[in-house]
Nucleic acid binder design. Structure first.
Lengths: 210, 210, 210, 210
DNA sequence: GATGAATGAGAATTCATTCAT
DNA sequence: TATGAATGAATTCTCATTCAT
């Protein structure tokens, strides 16, 4: 077959992205290395030139995804000019203001169809993201917009609970049902953080136009 | 080998139970049909006489487990002499009063090491159990001990969030950490349901004696 | 493909024998499991039903071969009515009297084309057979036909040296050359054991007819 | 990577030596081309620029090794001022007089952990070295220190037998056992060559000091 | 001369499933 | 009902070799 040489980082990224997509579509276990390389149009050896095993690329995907999310979250959390509520909105809102293609935290809630990747990413996300959010919550407590005893564990519970949106989406719930779930989530978050009702309205924007 | 004939239901149940246990121990994917039949001491053909495929027995296990849980939950929910709080305690407490070996709802939160089964059961549990609990919540609203707008979705969120205990346990958190998480969970539940602080104390019993 | 069921021992023996032959013909490394099963006409799974890995069957072959040889050698060594020289002749002669298809010790010198099997078998043969022969040598010392200080190590050296016939045969030496080598071997054996010249003539029978 | 240009012979020699060492350490089959080039810090293409295949370099190694040994052996054998016994001692003793890093014949008996190389070298050594030694034996016959009929085949047998030291060392025999084997070897050599007992004492030097 | 990304034919192994007995 | 030998497609991974740069 025609041999197409690419810059190593490019090729590597190409494989990671393709694997990422296929793992999300079909699941890690059901997606063979064969599928990945056929999709890209490279030889099997090429895959193993860049990754020493199948689990290895899973790790690479998780790392990549997490790095993006954590970085973007840290950027916001460390912004000195923003209030806690503004930071929350920036992180959890569906705003996509100045969308540059980077992953939003909120998108983690709409994720995948598969187990290994799903869980690995979710658990790691919870573990790595919760301290950042907890720090914002503490700021909010200082600003008297939140009232919580244990910010970290509270955030962790809420994060995990948020998965019920994702898990629910596996069953093909209707848009109406999903909207109801999103509203409830907002309410519980507000209550759990001791925030004023409606302060997290940005999570459920009123879409006047479709 | 000696051919041991058993009543079909007995044999079937034996296979389901063994598979259930092994799936929980090693995970569905890593547990081969071979392992199951060797454990029981039965031939491959026997397995396929009772179940037409491996996914087939997974379903059987989920069905069986859920049926037990749902039945026990329904029994409590339909008890006319109990208050909503009493029902909550009966379902979520670690009481084990009159322990007859049957699965408690609370145990669902301390579940397994594996994915397919874990998730399948959890999702189904959430879906099938949440209406029952929602009904109790509504009773509680009538009794003025709860105050919630959308009992069903709220329950579903809380159920999913409860998994952060399970997921956390996969990381070998310490007993102290787990206790902190349990306390936070209680607080959020109370806030989400609009219950009086401390009303779900039964979830975190004070263990005076070791 | 047509499914032909056989008695397990029969099938197992069939696989061992075929593998044995192919390993000797092409060498262990160059002989794939695929080759073996194609030769027999069974499925790959069948191979792995009987042997858990490729090294596993190598061991089975060595074991089988050695067991046969050691057994036949022990039978002769323990025969109380024979002199040491008669035992030597029985073991090392090319007599094939009453040939029953079983492996003769002498045949070990005409063995294989491959490494792993060759070496494994040879080393094991030397280790397991040398004590038996050493015991005969001691008997011979008692009967004043031999005179050696260290029967065991002497036997081991001679055994290893005998491989030069085998190794030589890898280069396709002529019959004349091989005969010369056999004669020299006889001489050295006699000298090493302190035996009378010509007492090991049975190793180089005069073939009047072809 | 930095491209380091070297004189062709130097580069070639570097590859041969590295491969030689790695083959001896890990075995020919288990040692990939990758390992070799990584060790040197050179690209794959470079390897294939100098050697057209993996078997090709094996041959190069054997050739190089043999050339060294044969040359050093010839040098001794052709020395007109030495007696046959002196030549034997020079070749087989552990003397290392004037050690210049070159391979001694005696070291061939203590050789490697691997098969392909081991056997190839040994067989070739036997074939190429035996005529040289045989010539010395003949000189010794003339000097009345040896008495043999067929020097060449005798030498070949003894060479092969000597491998039992090497093979034995694969089993981790103790120093005591190895010493016993070395003594026996000496005895057999003396007997086979018709030499006076003790004339090959140089093979088993008495080590008074540690 | 040198690089190293890319190739692809195999290799060993697994395991859900079938079927003759 | 039960057995267990037999199946074979699929999977992961290796590595000698090639070739565009």
């Amino acid at each position: 077959m025609a041999r197409i040489v690419k810059a190593p980082e490019e090729r590597r990224a190409e494989i990671v992205e393709t694997a990422d997509r296929l793992f999300r579509e079909h699941g890690y276990a059901k997606c063979s290395v064969e599928m990945i390389i056929r999709e890209i149009g490279v030889a099997k050896g090429t895959f193993y030139y860049y990754f020493k095993s199948k689990p290895d690329i899973l790790e690479a995907i998780v790392d990549k995804t997490l790095a993006q999310i954590v970085e973007s979250a840290k950027g916001i959390a460390d912004e000195p000019s923003l209030t806690a509520m503004q930071k929350m909105e920036a992180l959890l809102g569906n705003s996509h203001i100045g969308d540059d293609g980077s992953l939003e935290v909120a998108e983690m809630l709409h994720l995948p169809e598969n187990r290994e990747l799903h869980e690995l990413t979710n658990i790691q996300t919870v573990l790595q993201l919760s301290p950042i959010l907890a720090q914002i919550v503490e700021q909010g407590v200082g600003e008297s917009v939140f009232e919580v005893d244990r910010p970290l564990e509270t955030i962790q519970f809420l994060f995990t609970g948020a998965q019920f949106l994702t898990d629910g989406s596996m069953f093909g719930f209707s848009e109406t049902e999903l909207r109801a779930r999103r509203l409830v989530m907002q309410t519980i978050i507000e209550k759990a953080l001791g925030a004023k009702p409606g302060s997290f309205d940005f999570m459920n924007p009123i879409r006047t136009v479709e």
